[in-house]
Design a protein around this nucleic acid. Structure first.
Length: 426
RNA sequence: GUGGCUGUAGCUCACCAGGUAGAGCACCGGAUUGUGGCUCCGGAGGUAGCGGGUUCGAGACCCGUCAGCCACCCCA
């Protein structure tokens, strides 16, 4: 047992699982590219104030989950707990949003929470932000893009979309007052947490899991009655577009999100396969944030997906990303090895799509073949005196019962070309 | 942050009124000197998370601590 362990809530992604991560990330990049989005990379550190003002002073994230510390000049810095604030900051700072701008980012986020499966202190998100489009068309496209990603990953049928609208600021303020009034009248029937939130963040009481609190809420005023015409039309249009596109969703009037910056559309993609960590992706519209940063008032909409949770989901469904080599090269003696070394180098240059592992460290033929088998390689390639004398190599299939074959240099190239084409198709 | 469960070889686990640890899998090597997967044989690997206490003696009991897991909370 080593003296050092990873810090609590910070996990190592080991070689056995990185291929699944890479598949997940590559699929995301493909889908993002297909929708015209560009990557943006912003610092992991921002001023604490940036997060406090955008996410909300009284949210859990800001109140108790941020990794904040004084810089050497005593400015308070924080590791980013989410990606939207930094992205908007960068967009305004560099004047990126004079016309519509679609960006994405992928990387670590930090929240000081009690760790659990699917919930870590350093975790990774893919975030997507679209600036400059005020309409429901933008929200609809984001949701369709998510679904494309799920489909390419093969997890489409274990995810459900929950959708809600929390209206415009004025309507929401009026609703808050009405809700607070109603809940205050029923104060004694609320659980302790909800009683506390009544003063700080009454909307969050709506998605409480406490049955008695939910009972109180059944006759509470509903957001829907407080929507102004603009917010209502936006939501109706979004639902209409999703229907037309054949994207099913569940209307969840209790869905509110923990960050203060949202307005109108909010949504979550959830699964029943991950226990309490059901939300795999969440987002919505945040039309007010750009102006809050001193930029020209610009509508915006986006979402963030939790990569750990998606990896977990893929693992639960026993999905795998094959990264076995195509060729494992075995050689009989020092002379054969030297020739094999050069030949491996040539093959890698001529067939860059092939995975070619050369056996290193010597050992008997038998032990080399054992390694070849364990590597998962499809073919063992044999270099020994007999072949070399004729300028040939032997190829032995490790994953089928076919006969091994000894090929001339010319036939080898044809063979490798076919192998590469096959590898490309996978 | 709250409540609960767990912590023995790389992994999954066992033992034992408390008397200084074992299995399966994995790993390494071998089974008449050019060939893996099956089988057989052999080997390596643990100061029982860490610290303290009770005891003649603790992995087993008690306390603390750290970590993981479950639920809450929150969210990705």
């Amino acid at each position: 047992m080593s003296q050092y362990r990873a810090i609590r809530g910070m996990v190592d992604v080991l070689p056995g699982e990185t291929s699944l991560w890479q598949m997940l990330e590559q699929t995301a990049r493909d889908v993002l590219f297909a929708h015209g989005y560009s990557e943006i990379r912003t610092p992991l550190l921002e001023s604490t104030d940036l997060f406090a003002r955008t996410i909300g002073e009284v949210t859990d994230i800001v109140e108790k989950e941020m990794y904040s510390f004084p810089d050497r000049n005593d400015d308070s810095l924080s590791l980013r707990p989410e990606g939207t604030a930094g992205t908007v900051r960068a967009a305004v700072q560099h004047n990126l949003i004079q016309s519509p701008q679609r960006v994405w980012y992928m990387g670590p986020m930090f929240r000081y929470e009690r760790p659990q499966k699917g919930r870590q202190r350093q975790f990774h998100q893919l975030g997507v932000e679209a600036f400059g489009m005020p309409g429901a068309d933008q929200d609809a496209e984001l949701l369709l893009m998510c679904r494309q990603w799920w489909k390419r990953l093969g997890i489409d049928d274990v995810l459900t979309l929950e959708l809600n609208t929390i209206g415009n600021n004025e309507g929401r303020e009026r609703y808050k007052i009405a809700l607070t009034g109603y809940l205050s009248d029923n104060f004694d029937a609320l659980d302790e947490d909800s009683q506390r939130r009544l003063a700080t963040n009454p909307l969050r009481i709506l998605d409480s899991k406490i049955a008695s609190t939910q009972a109180v809420l059944t006759s509470a005023p509903e957001m829907a009655t407080f929507l102004d015409d603009d917010a209502r039309a936006h939501h109706d249009r979004l639902c209409e577009l999703l229907d037309i596109a054949g994207l099913p969703f569940i209307s969840n009037p209790r869905l509110v999100r923990g960050l203060d910056y949202y307005n109108k559309t909010v949504f979550e993609w959830t699964t029943d396969r991950l226990g309490a960590q059901a939300t795999v992706c969440g987002g919505g519209r945040y039309d007010g944030m750009v102006a809050q940063f001193g930029g020209k008032s610009t509508p915006a909409s986006g979402f963030a997906a939790g990569l750990e949770r998606l990896v977990l989901l893929l693992q639960t469904l026993e999905m795998d990303a094959n990264t076995s080599p195509d060729l494992y090269i075995v050689s009989a003696d020092d002379d054969a090895f030297a020739q094999a070394l050069c030949e491996a180098d040539r093959i890698r240059a001529a067939f860059p799509g092939l995975g070619v592992v050369q056996h290193l460290g010597g050992g008997s033929f038998k032990s080399q073949f054992k390694r070849a088998d364990k590597s998962g390689a499809a073919w063992a390639m044999v270099f020994a005196a007999e072949e070399l004398a004729e300028g040939k190599v032997t190829l032995k299939p490790l994953r089928s019962d076919e006969q091994q074959m000894t090929l001339s240099r010319e036939d080898l190239n044809t063979f490798l070309h076919q192998l590469e084409t096959l590898a490309f198709e996978n």
